[in-house]
Protein backbone atom coordinates (compact mmCIF):
# COMPACT_ATOMS: atom_id res chain seq x y z
CA UNK A 1 0.00 0.00 0.00
CA UNK A 2 1.57 3.29 -1.10
CA UNK A 3 1.32 6.67 0.63
CA UNK A 4 -1.65 7.75 -1.47
CA UNK A 5 -3.63 4.66 -0.42
CA UNK A 6 -2.75 5.32 3.21
CA UNK A 7 -3.82 8.96 2.85
CA UNK A 8 -7.14 7.95 1.27
CA UNK A 9 -7.77 5.40 4.01
CA UNK A 10 -7.03 8.04 6.66
CA UNK A 11 -9.39 10.58 5.05
CA UNK A 12 -12.08 7.90 4.77
CA UNK A 13 -11.86 7.13 8.48
CA UNK A 14 -12.79 10.76 9.30
CA UNK A 15 -15.72 10.97 6.88
CA UNK A 16 -19.36 10.14 7.65
CA UNK A 17 -20.22 6.71 6.26
CA UNK A 18 -22.71 8.24 3.79
CA UNK A 19 -19.91 10.22 2.12
CA UNK A 20 -17.04 7.79 2.59
CA UNK A 21 -16.84 5.80 -0.65
CA UNK A 22 -17.98 8.66 -2.89
CA UNK A 23 -15.44 11.17 -1.57
CA UNK A 24 -12.60 8.66 -1.34
CA UNK A 25 -13.19 7.48 -4.94
CA UNK A 26 -13.23 11.04 -6.22
CA UNK A 27 -10.17 12.04 -4.22
CA UNK A 28 -8.41 8.90 -5.39
CA UNK A 29 -9.04 9.74 -9.07
CA UNK A 30 -7.70 13.26 -8.55
CA UNK A 31 -4.61 12.10 -6.64
CA UNK A 32 -3.81 9.34 -9.15
CA UNK A 33 -4.12 11.80 -12.02
CA UNK A 34 -1.81 14.18 -10.20
CA UNK A 35 0.65 11.36 -9.56
CA UNK A 36 0.58 10.34 -13.25
CA UNK A 37 1.20 13.94 -14.30
CA UNK A 38 4.14 14.18 -11.94
CA UNK A 39 5.61 10.84 -13.09
CA UNK A 40 5.36 12.01 -16.70
CA UNK A 41 7.14 15.27 -15.90
CA UNK A 42 9.88 13.46 -13.97
CA UNK A 43 10.17 10.63 -16.52
CA UNK A 44 10.34 7.96 -13.80
CA UNK A 45 8.07 6.12 -11.33
CA UNK A 46 7.26 8.10 -8.21
CA UNK A 47 9.05 7.47 -4.94
CA UNK A 48 7.64 7.92 -1.46
CA UNK A 49 9.11 11.43 -1.24
CA UNK A 50 7.34 12.42 -4.49
CA UNK A 51 4.03 11.13 -3.19
CA UNK A 52 4.58 13.05 0.01
CA UNK A 53 5.06 16.18 -2.07
CA UNK A 54 1.69 15.55 -3.75
CA UNK A 55 -0.13 14.83 -0.51
CA UNK A 56 1.23 17.64 1.62
CA UNK A 57 -0.79 20.49 -0.01
CA UNK A 58 -4.03 18.51 0.48
CA UNK A 59 -3.70 19.00 4.21
CA UNK A 60 -3.95 16.60 7.15
CA UNK A 61 -6.46 13.79 6.44
CA UNK A 62 -8.70 14.91 9.30
CA UNK A 63 -8.71 18.49 8.00
CA UNK A 64 -9.37 17.34 4.45
CA UNK A 65 -12.27 15.17 5.62
CA UNK A 66 -13.71 17.95 7.76
CA UNK A 67 -13.84 20.25 4.73
CA UNK A 68 -16.25 17.81 3.12
CA UNK A 69 -18.72 18.20 5.98
CA UNK A 70 -21.87 19.87 4.70
CA UNK A 71 -21.72 22.64 7.31
CA UNK A 72 -18.50 24.63 7.66
CA UNK A 73 -19.64 27.10 10.31
CA UNK A 74 -22.10 26.95 13.19
CA UNK A 75 -23.64 30.34 12.60
CA UNK A 76 -22.73 32.41 9.55
CA UNK A 77 -22.47 36.19 9.31
CA UNK A 78 -26.06 36.60 8.06
CA UNK A 79 -27.54 35.06 11.22
CA UNK A 80 -24.82 36.03 13.68
CA UNK A 81 -26.34 39.37 14.84
CA UNK A 82 -29.63 37.58 15.61
CA UNK A 83 -27.76 34.77 17.35
CA UNK A 84 -25.84 37.21 19.53
CA UNK A 85 -29.02 39.12 20.39
CA UNK A 86 -30.79 35.85 21.19
CA UNK A 87 -27.96 34.94 23.59
CA UNK A 88 -28.23 38.30 25.35
CA UNK A 89 -32.01 37.98 25.57
CA UNK A 90 -31.76 34.45 26.91
CA UNK A 91 -29.28 35.69 29.50
CA UNK A 92 -31.73 38.29 30.77
CA UNK A 93 -34.98 36.44 30.23
CA UNK A 94 -33.98 32.92 31.24
CA UNK A 95 -30.61 32.70 32.99
CA UNK A 96 -30.96 35.76 35.21
CA UNK A 97 -34.53 35.00 36.40
CA UNK A 98 -33.62 31.32 36.86
CA UNK A 99 -30.60 32.35 38.90
CA UNK A 100 -32.64 34.74 41.01
CA UNK A 101 -35.36 32.13 41.52
CA UNK A 102 -32.72 29.46 42.24
CA UNK A 103 -31.10 31.80 44.75
CA UNK A 104 -34.45 32.57 46.35
CA UNK A 105 -35.33 28.86 46.64
CA UNK A 106 -31.92 28.18 48.13
CA UNK A 107 -32.46 31.02 50.60
CA UNK A 108 -35.79 29.43 51.59
CA UNK A 109 -34.65 25.84 51.94
CA UNK A 110 -30.84 25.80 52.34
CA UNK A 111 -29.34 25.07 55.73
CA UNK A 112 -26.77 27.86 55.61
CA UNK A 113 -25.77 30.81 53.45
CA UNK A 114 -22.80 28.95 51.90
CA UNK A 115 -25.10 26.22 50.68
CA UNK A 116 -27.54 28.85 49.40
CA UNK A 117 -24.82 30.65 47.40
CA UNK A 118 -23.56 27.33 46.06
CA UNK A 119 -27.01 26.36 44.82
CA UNK A 120 -27.65 29.79 43.31
CA UNK A 121 -24.34 29.73 41.42
CA UNK A 122 -24.99 26.14 40.36
CA UNK A 123 -28.40 27.17 38.98
CA UNK A 124 -26.79 30.12 37.15
CA UNK A 125 -24.05 27.98 35.63
CA UNK A 126 -26.24 25.11 34.48
CA UNK A 127 -28.90 27.56 33.25
CA UNK A 128 -26.29 29.44 31.22
CA UNK A 129 -24.82 26.26 29.72
CA UNK A 130 -28.22 24.83 28.74
CA UNK A 131 -29.52 28.12 27.38
CA UNK A 132 -26.43 28.91 25.32
CA UNK A 133 -26.40 25.31 24.06
CA UNK A 134 -30.04 25.33 22.99
CA UNK A 135 -29.80 28.74 21.29
CA UNK A 136 -26.63 27.66 19.47
CA UNK A 137 -28.20 24.41 18.27
CA UNK A 138 -31.29 26.25 17.00
CA UNK A 139 -29.19 28.79 15.09
CA UNK A 140 -26.85 26.10 13.74
CA UNK A 141 -29.91 24.30 12.32
CA UNK A 142 -31.24 27.57 10.84
CA UNK A 143 -27.83 28.25 9.30
CA UNK A 144 -27.56 24.75 7.85
CA UNK A 145 -30.98 25.20 6.25
CA UNK A 146 -29.88 28.61 4.93
CA UNK A 147 -32.82 30.29 6.65
CA UNK A 148 -32.78 34.06 6.36
CA UNK A 149 -34.52 36.16 9.01
CA UNK A 150 -36.42 38.94 7.27
CA UNK A 151 -38.28 40.39 10.26
CA UNK A 152 -36.23 43.59 10.28
CA UNK A 153 -36.19 44.16 6.53
CA UNK A 154 -39.37 46.21 6.69
CA UNK A 155 -38.20 48.58 9.41
CA UNK A 156 -39.36 52.17 9.21
CA UNK A 157 -36.93 54.97 10.06
CA UNK A 158 -39.88 57.18 11.07
CA UNK A 159 -40.65 54.81 13.95
CA UNK A 160 -37.24 55.23 15.58
CA UNK A 161 -37.66 56.64 19.12
CA UNK A 162 -36.70 60.21 19.82
CA UNK A 163 -33.48 60.10 21.85
CA UNK A 164 -34.82 62.99 23.94
CA UNK A 165 -37.62 60.78 25.21
CA UNK A 166 -35.38 58.22 26.94
CA UNK A 167 -36.98 54.83 27.45
CA UNK A 168 -40.67 55.29 27.02
CA UNK A 169 -42.95 53.70 29.61
CA UNK A 170 -46.55 53.27 28.41
CA UNK A 171 -48.95 55.28 30.57
CA UNK A 172 -51.36 52.32 30.58
CA UNK A 173 -48.67 50.21 32.28
CA UNK A 174 -48.05 52.89 34.93
CA UNK A 175 -51.78 53.36 35.52
CA UNK A 176 -52.35 49.64 35.94
CA UNK A 177 -49.44 49.37 38.38
CA UNK A 178 -50.70 52.36 40.33
CA UNK A 179 -54.25 51.00 40.69
CA UNK A 180 -53.10 47.46 41.49
CA UNK A 181 -50.65 48.59 44.18
CA UNK A 182 -53.05 51.09 45.76
CA UNK A 183 -55.71 48.37 45.96
CA UNK A 184 -53.23 45.94 47.47
CA UNK A 185 -52.07 48.58 49.98
CA UNK A 186 -55.60 49.23 51.19
CA UNK A 187 -56.27 45.53 51.60
CA UNK A 188 -52.91 45.01 53.27
CA UNK A 189 -53.42 47.80 55.81
CA UNK A 190 -56.91 46.51 56.52
CA UNK A 191 -55.52 43.03 57.14
CA UNK A 192 -53.98 44.32 60.37
CA UNK A 193 -57.23 43.40 62.10
CA UNK A 194 -56.29 39.98 63.42
CA UNK A 195 -57.47 37.39 64.05
CA UNK A 196 -60.06 37.11 61.28
CA UNK A 197 -63.26 35.39 62.21
CA UNK A 198 -65.66 33.35 60.16
CA UNK A 199 -68.63 31.17 60.92
CA UNK A 200 -68.72 27.58 59.75
CA UNK A 201 -72.10 25.89 60.20
CA UNK A 202 -72.99 28.28 62.97
CA UNK A 203 -69.72 27.78 64.85
CA UNK A 204 -67.00 30.37 65.02
CA UNK A 205 -63.69 29.61 63.24
CA UNK A 206 -60.58 31.73 63.74
CA UNK A 207 -57.93 32.36 61.12
CA UNK A 208 -54.82 33.37 63.05
CA UNK A 209 -51.93 34.78 61.00
CA UNK A 210 -48.51 33.56 62.03
CA UNK A 211 -45.94 35.92 63.55
CA UNK A 212 -44.10 36.37 60.25
CA UNK A 213 -46.87 38.61 58.89
CA UNK A 214 -46.36 41.11 61.69
CA UNK A 215 -42.63 41.10 61.06
CA UNK A 216 -43.03 41.91 57.35
CA UNK A 217 -46.08 44.15 57.62
CA UNK A 218 -44.19 47.46 57.58
CA UNK A 219 -41.47 46.42 55.05
CA UNK A 220 -44.22 45.39 52.63
CA UNK A 221 -45.95 48.75 53.07
CA UNK A 222 -42.65 50.53 52.33
CA UNK A 223 -41.93 48.55 49.14
CA UNK A 224 -45.52 48.99 47.91
CA UNK A 225 -45.33 52.74 48.61
CA UNK A 226 -42.08 52.96 46.60
CA UNK A 227 -43.78 51.14 43.71
CA UNK A 228 -46.77 53.49 43.92
CA UNK A 229 -44.47 56.53 43.94
CA UNK A 230 -42.42 55.35 40.95
CA UNK A 231 -45.57 54.38 39.02
CA UNK A 232 -47.02 57.83 39.73
CA UNK A 233 -43.84 59.51 38.44
CA UNK A 234 -43.90 57.23 35.36
CA UNK A 235 -47.51 58.22 34.76
CA UNK A 236 -46.72 61.93 34.94
CA UNK A 237 -43.46 61.70 32.98
CA UNK A 238 -43.66 58.64 30.69
CA UNK A 239 -39.95 57.93 30.27
CA UNK A 240 -37.73 56.26 32.79
CA UNK A 241 -34.23 57.33 33.81
CA UNK A 242 -31.44 54.94 34.77
CA UNK A 243 -31.71 56.11 38.38
CA UNK A 244 -35.40 55.25 38.42
CA UNK A 245 -34.70 51.87 36.87
CA UNK A 246 -32.13 51.17 39.58
CA UNK A 247 -34.64 52.21 42.24
CA UNK A 248 -37.24 49.85 40.79
CA UNK A 249 -34.73 46.97 40.61
CA UNK A 250 -33.67 47.54 44.23
CA UNK A 251 -37.30 47.73 45.31
CA UNK A 252 -38.23 44.55 43.43
CA UNK A 253 -35.29 42.68 44.96
CA UNK A 254 -36.21 43.98 48.42
CA UNK A 255 -39.79 42.78 47.91
CA UNK A 256 -38.50 39.40 46.72
CA UNK A 257 -36.36 39.18 49.87
CA UNK A 258 -39.47 39.84 51.98
CA UNK A 259 -41.35 37.07 50.14
CA UNK A 260 -38.41 34.74 50.83
CA UNK A 261 -38.59 35.60 54.53
CA UNK A 262 -42.33 34.85 54.51
CA UNK A 263 -41.82 31.57 52.65
CA UNK A 264 -39.20 30.46 55.15
CA UNK A 265 -41.90 30.54 57.86
CA UNK A 266 -43.57 27.52 56.09
CA UNK A 267 -46.85 28.06 57.96
CA UNK A 268 -48.80 31.26 57.55
CA UNK A 269 -52.32 30.82 58.93
CA UNK A 270 -53.60 28.73 61.81
CA UNK A 271 -57.20 27.65 61.43
CA UNK A 272 -58.63 27.27 64.89
CA UNK A 273 -62.08 25.74 65.41
CA UNK A 274 -64.05 24.15 68.25
CA UNK A 275 -63.80 20.39 68.77
CA UNK A 276 -66.70 19.35 66.49
CA UNK A 277 -65.05 21.11 63.51
CA UNK A 278 -61.56 19.99 64.31
CA UNK A 279 -61.16 17.65 61.32
CA UNK A 280 -62.51 20.18 58.85
CA UNK A 281 -60.30 22.85 60.39
CA UNK A 282 -57.24 20.62 59.96
CA UNK A 283 -58.03 20.07 56.29
CA UNK A 284 -58.79 23.76 55.86
CA UNK A 285 -55.52 24.66 57.58
CA UNK A 286 -53.61 22.41 55.17
CA UNK A 287 -55.23 23.72 51.98
CA UNK A 288 -55.12 27.36 53.01
CA UNK A 289 -51.41 27.15 53.79
CA UNK A 290 -50.75 25.17 50.64
CA UNK A 291 -52.55 27.82 48.56
CA UNK A 292 -50.62 30.59 50.27
CA UNK A 293 -47.34 28.81 49.51
CA UNK A 294 -48.21 28.45 45.80
CA UNK A 295 -49.38 32.04 45.68
CA UNK A 296 -46.18 33.27 47.29
CA UNK A 297 -44.07 31.33 44.78
CA UNK A 298 -46.02 32.90 41.90
CA UNK A 299 -45.53 36.38 43.43
CA UNK A 300 -41.82 35.65 43.90
CA UNK A 301 -41.38 34.47 40.30
CA UNK A 302 -43.24 37.48 38.89
CA UNK A 303 -41.22 39.88 41.04
CA UNK A 304 -37.91 38.38 39.98
CA UNK A 305 -38.94 38.38 36.30
CA UNK A 306 -39.84 42.06 36.66
CA UNK A 307 -36.44 42.77 38.21
CA UNK A 308 -34.73 40.92 35.31
CA UNK A 309 -36.82 42.84 32.79
CA UNK A 310 -35.81 46.14 34.38
CA UNK A 311 -32.13 45.08 34.34
CA UNK A 312 -32.48 44.17 30.67
CA UNK A 313 -33.95 47.57 29.93
CA UNK A 314 -31.26 49.28 31.96
CA UNK A 315 -28.22 47.45 30.62
CA UNK A 316 -29.07 46.29 27.12
CA UNK A 317 -31.78 48.39 25.52
CA UNK A 318 -30.53 51.47 23.75
CA UNK A 319 -31.05 54.52 25.80
CA UNK A 320 -31.53 58.16 25.00
CA UNK A 321 -29.40 60.99 26.30
CA UNK A 322 -31.63 61.60 29.31
CA UNK A 323 -30.97 58.13 30.71
Amino acid sequence: MDLIDRYLAAVGRHLPTTLQSDVVDELSANLRSEAEGMAQRLGRPLEAADQEQILKPHGHPWLMASRYQPQQQLVGPALYPYYRQALVMVLFWVVLPMTLIGGALAAIYAQDSGQAWGRALGAAWSGAIYSVGIVTIVFAILDSQQVRITALDQWQPSKLPDPQDGRAVPRSESLFSLIANLTFLMIWIDLIRVPQLATWGGDEVQFVPSAVWSAVHMPIIVTVLVTIATSFVDLMRPWRTALFSLLRIANALAFAAIVVVVLRAQHWIDVVAPGVLHDRATRGDYWINQSIEWGLFVVLAITLFEASHEMWQLLVARRGRRV
Binding site: E26, L27, P57, H58, L63, M64, R67
Partner: peptide, 8 residues
Protein backbone atom coordinates in the same frame (compact mmCIF):
# COMPACT_ATOMS: atom_id res chain seq x y z
CA UNK B 1 -5.99 27.03 -5.50
CA UNK B 2 -5.26 24.39 -2.86
CA UNK B 3 -6.61 20.91 -3.47
CA UNK B 4 -7.95 20.92 0.08
CA UNK B 5 -10.03 23.96 -0.77
CA UNK B 6 -11.05 23.14 -4.33
CA UNK B 7 -12.30 19.56 -4.06
CA UNK B 8 -14.65 20.13 -1.10
Amino acid sequence: IDEGTLYP
